[in-house]
Amino acid sequence: MRDKTIYTLGISGTLLLLYNLHTILMVLPDEAAQGTIGKMLLIHAPAAIAGMTLYFVAVAYSIMFLKTKNFAYDSAAVAVIEVAQVFTLINLVTGSIWGHIIWGIWWTWDARLTRQFMCFMLYLGYLLMRPALNEATQRATISAFVAIFAAADIPLVWLAIRVHDARTQHPGPVLETGTLDPAWRIPFLISWIAFMLIGSALAMVRVRQENARREIDSLRRELHAI
């Protein structure tokens, strides 16, 4: 049952992504000002949004864990954060490649680049800390605490950068400003949906591993007790 769900989600996400790739490569015309590379938007921005969505899903799971002490929430939180890190990494790498052509540099301390990078660093700490904790209950509680702190920090990072965003080179967010070409809206949306589908499949695999890891901890204790 679980296996089937994972495969269905993963495969349908991949198919959507392939279909979208076809649209992007064959159907859509090049962006007027930037040429082909302008189409990077259709993978770059959806990845960022998917990552952000998942970070906030993760903090909800973390709060739920602290409230209920149900390990299902802890597994879900770490799985979702790891997948969110993957999407944020995609966002950073594609953005960097895009920037190399359009801005002529790989990296700039632009407001939103910095923000994404900071989110990545915040949750990298979370992922690095987990294996250093041996006891499952403690690991889950402390992780939830760190995840909540990290999520609370994101709006502040946002705010801090907004105060000093004189150097921004980024165009305004395409969704908020409504500058996205109507023809691009559907592929944009499909990218996001595909990412969420693939992300859910990967997160489900990761949840299983986390559960197995807890079983390992439990067996170790049992061995110790016998």
Binding site: F71, E135, A136, T137, A140, R214, E215, D217, S218, R221, E222, A225
Partner: peptide, 9 residues
């Protein structure tokens, strides 16, 4: 009392 999945009590 559970430590992870292991019931110590």
């Amino acid at each position: 009392k559970y430590f992870g999945d292991y019931p110590a009590l």
